[in-house]
Design a protein around this nucleic acid. Structure first.
Lengths: 213, 213
DNA sequence: TAGATTGTTAATCGATTAACAATC
DNA sequence: TAGATTGTTAATCGATTAACAATC
């Protein structure tokens, strides 16, 4: 599994493979060929084989791929065999939605803490987890070995909070604030810009209405 | 503005241009060159000029681009000069987060209705909007000319609800359910698969920890 | 063994970057 | 006019697809 220089295009497809393989596994499917998977996922068999071969051969000539094995290996590549400690900053609806989403815990993403700058929320519970004031951020991160910070706060404070997280050793940020964070290159940032997504939908919808599809 | 065959790679960058130009405009910046914008956004000036030229020339040799004009034109391309009527199906935390996000309304996305299959929620208000039972879905869509459906429901019911929406004439679906919807090709679908996003972050974080960056 | 299907190389396609003539 | 910067063509780069030899 000597991964080097895998393109983000490939990485971006891995979670989808993982999802389909998980479903096949749940259905009791034991083996699958790149051609069958191609048909199921609407991507070319060639791409499937190329993608998997970036990480070494998982299949067998004449047989195909073992579903359970491939599922597990992709999980490992994605780092899902390890646990990650995360905190959510901003316990509005979006923060609460994420906190309540059980599946993340199942994948090894452990919600260690919740933070909010609204004093009225301090001490309240979300899914049994206490909401803490921002003043406790640094000490909490250090004490709980937090490696992922989730930002569900307005863009005005995002840059500032991100800086505080990184200063305490947080190595990855899942950013829902509508701003491009300026952080050292070794910090991994994954942006979820919801309004960008809606605008893309709007473009495609508008274009289709104009009959340009 | 004769758009034809614009790649999704280009479309995907438009919202980000739009955001940066909006901020520049708010700061009172009147003109900007592709080189200055390049420096600001960390993309090549060449790409910026190529991207804009897909839609016709918005700039002027020797001058650059007028910020306010370019901002408005990109807004038009994205369809933000028109209003869209949308409904949100699923009023859990995620649905409520979206319903409360005022910016969508500012961009012309009008939240016409909220739906949930939980009878206990029927009649409750979210940001002044009444939550309706799923039985009213079809009549409401027809009566309010809904063109975008937002799915913030579990994946088990997503396919079924999407089908009902499309059957009533909904032309675009913003899908937060963790499933690939099988719909006619003329229906625009934009997926927000949050766990896919988190897995990508996990991959990059894991790879970095292994010292493979 | 024969058939099937991978792993991998080669060919194609598309997207990005570079270069520069056009022109404000 | 001279300088600046776009619009656009050409060159490069990377990603996808096709083809096929290797092999189970």
């Amino acid at each position: 599994m000597e991964e080097k220089g895998i393109s983000q295009a490939v990485i971006g497809r891995l979670p989808r493979y993982f999802r389909f393989l998980g479903e096949l596994k749940d259905q009791g499917v034991e083996r699958i060929s790149s051609q069958e998977l191609s048909y199921l996922m609407h991507v070319t068999a060639s791409q499937i084989r190329q993608d998997f071969n970036n990480f070494g051969g998982f299949g067998q000539q004449g047989y195909g791929y073992n579903v359970a094995y491939l599922y597990e290996e992709i999980g490992k590549i994605l780092g899902l065999d390890q646990t990650h400690n995360l905190i959510i900053i901003g316990t509005g609806h979006l923060g609460q939605a994420l906190a309540n989403y059980m599946n993340f815990e199942r994948r090894g993403f452990l919600i260690k803490g919740l933070f909010d700058n609204d004093p009225k929320l301090t001490g309240t519970l979300v899914r049994g987890i206490e909401v803490r004031p921002m003043s406790e951020l640094e000490s909490f991160i250090t004490a709980h070995n937090v490696d992922i910070g989730v930002l569900t706060i307005p863009k005005t404070s995002a840059e500032d909070v991100a800086g505080r997280l990184v200063a305490c050793g947080v190595k990855a940020i899942w950013n829902f604030a509508h701003v491009d964070l300026q952080l050292p290159p070794e910090v991994q940032v994954e942006n979820v810009h919801l309004s960008d997504s809606l605008m893309k939908l709007s473009y495609n919808l508008t274009r289709q209405e104009k009959g340009q599809v």
